[in-house]
Design a protein around this nucleic acid. Structure first.
Length: 862
DNA sequence: AATGTGCCCTTCTAGACAGCATGTC
DNA sequence: CTAGAAGGGCACATT
């Protein structure tokens, strides 16, 4: 079947023609035959790289051209992906084909309504859910929904969201065409049944895939055997060397980050020994070295120089991109990777070695990876148009094992997908959103809506769902997120906020319970202050803030006890304006307490605690016991320590401790810092909104931490950071030069400022300060200076592009100048919190002590 | 002297979505 | 409570 023979818009056909694609692959043809262009729902399970994208594009362009009879004349398409990186990848792929493409993820989006002008909108499933929660109007106009990796409906954490997005969208847009792209699944007919879809399934690939098991010196494929030279001792390196000698590249999947790094090191040595080298690798090495601030980065650079790299989530985005590109360009010969590369970007290689097929799971030991995941890895084998074939190889340690691996993975049937909507916490969140958006108005609505879900479709007889729905409703009601008037269900302001913030209702409850507790203490201080007429600062000591008890069970969801506690404080009395001094607030508020609270939330993922961390955590715990907000209890100790460790890292971050120090101190990679900080930013924003509602006197304190987290700065830099064009580095430079506030900038002379910031920036900063402080003569901290920033943006928009270019040039010059000054102020990095330095020394001593005594048992050994 | 090898023992274990409002070095 | 790689420490061999 020829592409040009189909009733499709020309730009699409031409764009593919340019890439040399004029004819449909067999599975694509089948999709067309089964009604792809007639608006039929399809469940398409075909291997990666066999042209799923084109299938989706054909349908979407068809819709956009208004050729599908259902719905409005001009169609609008939503393309749902599981990862942000995938969203960007698809954006690139879809662009330049005559239709308007928009992208909406947590990081990247335009104003919601503006987004709706596009023909195709690419989003993550969570963002799609969020858009639905905000009643985004254009969501009602979707005529074609494409769900990429739709089997992720089975994902333990995120499947429920995807299921609800599909269900809600189908409910909103009755005639919408649904195209679900999945990996091979065990129960496609059931899944297709729910979607009312035709099922298209195929094993066809553009490049042949041979799957086999390696044992001793031979790869045993299904139909052939292949002997491998074994110059090195280890099987894994030999497999890669063999492939490289043949002109290919390989990808090695391992189970842990350390294994990934360890393998890359070994592989680099082996490559060096084999005499392989490529001058192009030097450039890559230089790039990597330039951004390597940690040991890990240096190791990465040195391995990559030899042609072997590793890839995992502890790395910086930048490092990952360099490795990916180096591999795509063919310079890097081997990447050893954790599952990051299996699920993420499309980065094929001739030979894929699945070395570690067991993965550790806490509490259950080593478990074989799911077949679907094996397939996903194996599917990476073979670069279309570049490799004659692809090979996926498992490594066996004995003959029996070889047979076992064949059965376990290669010839094993794919797993079924099942609904994850029965997860209580996920369902709770979804029920709230349904009520908040008025998708449902009462209990009956709720039940009948949920009848449309995959869960009900697959569990027709079970009454389990209605049980947990009931539970969720009563939880939400008790928490004050929804109210029942007669039969009608309404979301309260609080409920709307929680739904809108997109945080788990349980997280919200944990946050607001504790913040209200704190607010209560503040009011108590005030009351005592009025009665006794003593200074508030003295009272801080009088009132011992009891650490809040979180609900203790493993599933803290439905403990009504904590709810009663919350209800006892009247919200109305709290909203009264009260005057508190900063001392009052600091008597009940602490950075580490807040961080601990938010890390305890199910929306935050926490760091793994190693043995070496325990003494550090212990001393930290004793040093800051009073400042902590949450109790550490015996039965949740492991979790509690993870929480403390994560909170500690974040506290380091807002104490301007350098990246490399944090990495070595906590045994994490730069990528982890980024992830943890990012997650905390989001929660801090949510906490500030919740505190505005529940504990208004703490709002400023929370917002301060939020601002510091965003920038990675100590409290003292807050006044400076608010200036445009001043980030953490410039703010610190100003501060170290005695300019500690905007007012000081006003007082400082221009020469001094431009020596610190460069002329251009100095000028801009002075302008801002004059505007703000022109007539005011005080040092009041301005918490919200978005106004200033808004004005700036408007002005910038009016400026010509040529002017911008000029600016850029000047900027470069300034950068050179300021580089010198930076050198002078290098001590910024060492500005670490002396607290921690001391703790570390203590720790070392304690370690020694422990080694000597080796008998000291404490609370801290789990 | 510097480096490699074999062996024992201990340690440790993947990833990543979401809000908001725009711009650091 | 599971499997096994990596890495450190150490003794000893090789360049």
């Amino acid at each position: 079947m020829m592409l040009s023979g189909l009733d499709l818009p020309k730009p699409l056909i031409e764009a593919y023609g340019k890439k040399g694609i004029t004819e449909l692959y067999p599975p694509q043809e089948e999709c067309v035959k089964k009604g792809l262009l007639e608006g039929r729902n399809l469940l398409i399970s075909i291997p990666t790289a066999s042209g799923k994208t084109l299938v989706a594009e054909m349908a979407m362009h068809h819709h956009i051209a208004g050729k599908v009879n259902k719905g409005p004349s001009k169609g609008k398409c939503l393309y749902v992906v599981p990862l942000k990186a995938l969203a960007s990848e698809k954006y690139e792929e879809f662009s330049g084909k005559g239709v308007r493409i928009g992208i909406a993820t947590g990081d990247l989006d335009k104003r919601d309504e503006y987004l709706g002008q596009n023909d195709i909108i690419i989003t993550t499933s969570e963002k799609a859910d969020s858009l639905l929660r905000n009643n985004t109007r254009w969501m009602n106009l979707i005529t074609c929904l494409v769900v990429d990796e739709a089997h992720l409906i089975d994902s333990e954490n995120r499947g429920a969201t995807l299921e609800m997005v599909i269900t809600k969208l189908r409910y909103l847009n009755e005639n919408m065409q649904v195209i679900a792209l999945t990996a091979t699944i065990g129960n496609p007919r059931l899944f297709a049944g729910w979607l009312e879809a035709e099922h298209v399934s195929s094993e066809w690939r553009p490049v042949d895939l041979k799957e086999g098991v390696f044992y001793s010196d031979t790869i045993y494929f299904e139909e052939e055997e292949k002997k491998i030279k074994t110059p090195a001792k280890e099987d894994d390196t030999n497999l890669c060397l063999d492939c490289i000698e043949d002109g290919g590249q390989s990808l090695v999947f391992v189970s842990s980050r350390r294994n990934a790094e360890g393998f890359a090191k070994r592989m680099a040595k082996a490559l060096e020994k084999s005499g392989f080298s490529d001058p192009a690798l030097e450039d890559i090495q230089k790039k990597l070295e330039a951004i390597a601030e940690t040991d890990m980065g240096k190791i990465l650079a040195s391995c990559t120089a030899k042609g072997a790299a590793f890839h995992h989530a502890g790395m910086k985005r930048e490092q990952r991109h360099i490795i990916e590109q180096g591999f795509r360009d063919g310079y890097i010969k081997v990447i050893s990777s954790t599952p990051t590369l299996a699920a993420g970007l499309n980065l094929p290689a001739r030979r894929v070695v699945i070395r570690d097929f067991l993965r550790f799971k806490g509490g259950e030991g080593m478990l074989p990876i799911p077949v679907r995941e094996y397939r996903q890895m194996a599917g990476r084998a073979g670069r279309p148009h570049l490799d004659p074939y692809g090979e996926a190889v498992l490594i066996a340690k004995g003959r029996d094992m070889a047979n076992g691996l064949f059965e376990e993975f290669i010839s094993a049937p794919a797993e079924d997908v099942k609904s994850r909507l029965d997860d209580e916490s996920a369902l709770c969140s979804q029920v709230l959103s349904l009520i908040s958006t008025e998708f449902v108005k009462n209990n009956d609505d709720l039940v009948s809506f949920l009848k449309r879900t995959f869960y009900t479709f697959t569990n027709k007889k079970s009454s389990h769902l209605s049980d947990i729905v009931e539970k969720a409703v009563s939880y939400l009601e008790a928490a004050g997120m929804i109210t029942k008037i007669d039969d009608r269900l309404f979301a309260t302001d609080y409920g709307n906020l929680v739904s809108h913030l997109y945080i788990n209702p349980i997280s919200a409850e944990i946050i607001s319970t504790v913040l209200r507790e704190k607010q209560k203490t503040l009011l108590e201080i005030k009351r005592l202050g009025e009665v006794e007429d003593i200074k508030a600062s003295d009272i801080g000591d009088l009132i011992k803030t009891e650490p809040a008890k979180t609900t203790k069970s493993v599933n803290p969801v439905y403990s009504i006890d904590s709810m009663k506690q919350v209800k006892s404080a009247s919200a109305k009395s709290m909203l009264k304006k009260t005057a508190f001094t900063p001392e009052d607030i600091s008597a009940v508020f602490s950075d580490i307490g807040l961080l601990q609270l938010l890390c305890k939330t199910p929306d935050m993922y926490t760091l793994y605690v190693r043995k070496d961390d325990l003494p550090v955590l212990e001393s930290f715990y004793y040093a800051h016991e009073d400042e902590l907000w949450m109790e550490i209890s015996y039965d949740t100790m492991e979790d509690d320590f993870r929480v403390i460790k994560t909170a500690m890292l974040l506290d380091n971050w807002i104490s301007e401790i350098g990246e490399d120090t944090i990495c070595t101190r906590f045994g994490v990679g730069p990528g982890d810092i980024y992830n943890v900080v990012e997650g905390m930013n989001w929660l801090l924003y949510s906490a500030s909104r919740i505190s505005y509602m529940m504990a208004p006197d703490l709002k400023i304190s929370v917002s301060e931490v939020e601002l510091r987290m965003k920038n990675g700065i100590k409290r003292e830099l807050i006044p400076l950071i608010k200036l445009k064009n001043v980030g953490r580095v410039r703010a610190r430079r100003l501060f170290n030069n005695g300019i500690t506030s905007p007012l000081k900038i006003k007082e400082a002379n221009f020469d001094k400022l431009s020596a610190i910031l460069g002329q251009k920036i100095a000028g801009q900063v002075i302008k801002q300060v004059e505007k703000e402080y022109g007539n005011i003569n005080n040092t009041e901290i301005i918490i919200n200076n978005t106004e200033i920033k808004k004005e700036h943006t408007l002005r910038e928009e009016r400026e010509d592009k040529s002017e911008r270019r000029e600016r850029k040039n000047r900027k470069i010059e300034n950068q050179k100048k300021s580089a010198e000054i930076i050198k002078k102020n290098e001590n910024f990095e060492n500005f670490g919190n002396s607290d921690y330095e001391e703790e570390e020394k203590n720790t070392e001593q304690k370690k020694k002590n422990q080694k000597n005594k080796n008998t000291q048992r404490s609370l801290f050994e789990f």
